[in-house]
Design a protein around this nucleic acid. Structure first.
Lengths: 192, 192
DNA sequence: GTCTATACACAGATAGAC
DNA sequence: GTCTATCTGTGTATAGAC
């Protein structure tokens, strides 16, 4: 009920989200948003009393939520290697878009409020829990599970940074599976 | 000869570098730079004919170069585990500052020219070469060496993202050594 | 080389008509 | 709800005096 589509409010939000992602918050003007959304600035201020800053708040919240992945097809793996392979492949889907959003959130972090940063931290903690819940099926030591799960997340974030956003994937002809393979090889058959 | 310190030009550059890092390029005005540098905007335009954009070009180049690490104390390790431990500890030094710069470069990437992006890519390729040169002392397969080296770099970048810039290090009471340990444990005694 | 003074475009934001 | 019109501040940039 809350999300009736195609009303102007949603169009403005979508437009702002797109422009913020492309050019950054500070470099995007309300004028530009209005033009792209097919309305005037006054219309924006009718729907969003706090103006541009309110747009950022809402867009940031949505963007962060959209980063959450369900990890559906990663569940119920038969081994740690199997899990990491599934996990990697699941994250590889739609990675360009996700990488762009990761870059944006990271870029605008200094603009966020304490609460928004805390929310983003919680999203990572929740994501980590999801990963750890699968990992602990194969590793006994709790601390080991925690750390390995963070390692997987860090590796994925770093990959997004260098290989996707910086364009190294195209330059080196790499695919995520290359990184997955070395991870699984490292983690198999060594007591973990 | 080229870097005579304390002339106004250098003061302006240092100030711009600091403000760009703190608030981002778009959100930093030439007026603000001038005030912080203790001069007027006209002085900036005397030293930098292309104005703000020229400041960005120079600052970006310096920032990127400053990201390069020599890997001095990581050389000549006695085993792969030893290397990774040294590598991690070496990068852990001054990580707050480096993480901030990494975030900034990533954030401003869309503003950079083709050449500047290519330069940044080359820096990563060079860094990867340095890492690979050490790793290949312990692993035979060339592809394996390549991938493992990238994994180490990605893990480090991801750590910087979540644990330092997002503040998870303080929140979870983590230190880089926790991630190093799980990496070395994974890579020891499994044929790699 | 650094200043004062200023040009001029564009920023975010609002009042009031329809 | 959306518009036109407009306010006021700030942005980049430059001319010309010292």
């Amino acid at each position: 009920m809350k999300t009736k589509k195609n009303n102007r409010r949603e169009i403005i939000l979508d437009t702002a989200a797109r422009l913020f992602l492309e050019r950054g918050y500070s470099a995007t003007s309300t004028r530009h948003i209005a033009e792209s959304a097919g309305c005037t600035e006054a219309a924006i201020y009718y729907h969003f009393k706090d103006g541009k800053r309110e747009l950022l708040r809402i867009v940031a919240k949505r963007r962060m939520s959209s980063l959450m992945v369900a990890l559906d097809s990663s569940r119920g793996a038969s081994s740690l290697t199997d899990f990491i392979t599934r996990f990697g492949n699941e994250l590889a889907e739609g990675r360009e878009e996700r990488a762009k959003i990761l870059r944006w959130v990271s870029a605008e972090l200094p603009l966020f409020s304490e609460e928004e940063i805390a929310l983003h931290q919680q999203l990572y903690l929740f994501f980590h829990q999801q990963v750890a819940a699968e990992v602990e099926r194969f590793i006994v030591d709790k601390n080991e599970v925690e750390r390995l799960s963070w390692l997987l997340i860090c590796a994925m974030l770093g990959y997004a940074d260098v290989f996707i956003n910086l364009g190294m994937e195209a330059r080196l002809n790499y695919v995520p599976q290359d990184l997955i393979r070395v991870l699984t090889k490292a983690l198999s058959s060594n007591g973990l």
